[in-house]
Each structure stands twice: as C-alpha cells, then as structure tokens.
Computed example of a mutant assay.
Amino acid sequence: MEFRDSQAIYLQIADYLCEQILLNKWQADERVPSVRELAVSLEVNPNTVMRTCEFLQQKEVIYNKRGIGYFVAQDAVKKVKLLKKERFLENELPQFFRSIYLLDIDLDELKSHYEKFKRSNFK
C-alpha cells in the first residue's frame, strides 16, 4: 500500500478497510484479517493497525470478540458510508467546489463527466 503524507497512516488504513467492506469483500459478522496479518500485508507496525482497529471500533464499523479478533459490524456498510460522506463533505468537497469555480466548470458539464465516469468504472 502506498501511503500519502497528507493523512495519518492509521486513517489511510481505515479507508482501505472500509473500502473492503464497501466492495463486499468482507461481509457483516465476518472476521477481518488479524492485526498481525494486516500489518504484514500492509508493511506497517502492528501498533498502527491496532490504532486503526480501535478507531473503526469506536465508529462501530467493526467489533471485537475477545480472544478471537475483529469482525465486521452488522450495519458496517451504513456506518462506513456515513463516515466517508462526513469526511468527504468536510475535507474534499470545499476544495472541489473551489476548483470548479476557479475553472468555470458548470454543473451540466460536470454531470456529463460524472455519468461517463460511472459508466466506465462501475458496469
């Protein structure tokens, strides 16, 4: 995994885990890979992965079965979407609006590009 300097590593790992849930690679009540397994596969310190798991547990995306590991929460998809939407609206959307304003891109043009993107990426 390539990490960016613009965001804490544990949050980037959280984004990765959330993406796995949204892509249905991990289903509700299914065990996620262990902290050690994730640390090895992502080439990070296990403490960083543990911080990610604690963060996602606090956000009720995953839950811990003591001695067994972490599992995907029943309503994880809903929680992930809310979490990602909130972060998008707070952090990315203002910059996006600024860019389309400065570049004088109207919403109709933007809509056509968005529809093209959906067709080519999510068939």
Rank of each mutant, 00 (worst) to 15 (best):
P46S: 03
K118I: 15
Q20N: 08
I13N: 04
S6L: 12
Y101S: 15
K25P: 11
F55N: 09
Y10E: 04
K59F: 00
V32Y: 05
K78P: 09
K65Q: 10
F3C: 10
Q74K: 03
I100F: 05
Q20L: 15
Y70G: 02
D75P: 00
V35Q: 12
W26A: 09
L17G: 08
I68P: 01
D29Y: 07
Y70T: 00
L56T: 00
I21V: 15
E115V: 08
K84A: 09
I105E: 09
E19C: 11
L107A: 12
N64E: 08
A39R: 01
F96D: 05
F71D: 02
Y70K: 00
E60Y: 02
C53Y: 06
K65H: 05
K118W: 07
A39T: 05
F71Q: 02
S99Y: 14
L38E: 03
F71A: 06
D104K: 15
R66K: 08
L11H: 08
R36L: 11
I21E: 03
D5S: 12
V44F: 01
D5M: 11
K85F: 07
I9A: 09
V80K: 02
L56Q: 02
M50R: 12
L82C: 11
K59I: 00
Q95K: 08
E30F: 01
R87G: 06
I100P: 06
K123G: 13
F55Q: 06
L82Y: 06
E19V: 15
L93Y: 12
Y63F: 05
E86L: 09
K118F: 11
V35M: 10
A28N: 00
K111H: 11
V49L: 05
K84D: 03
L110N: 01
F96C: 00
R36V: 02
T52P: 02
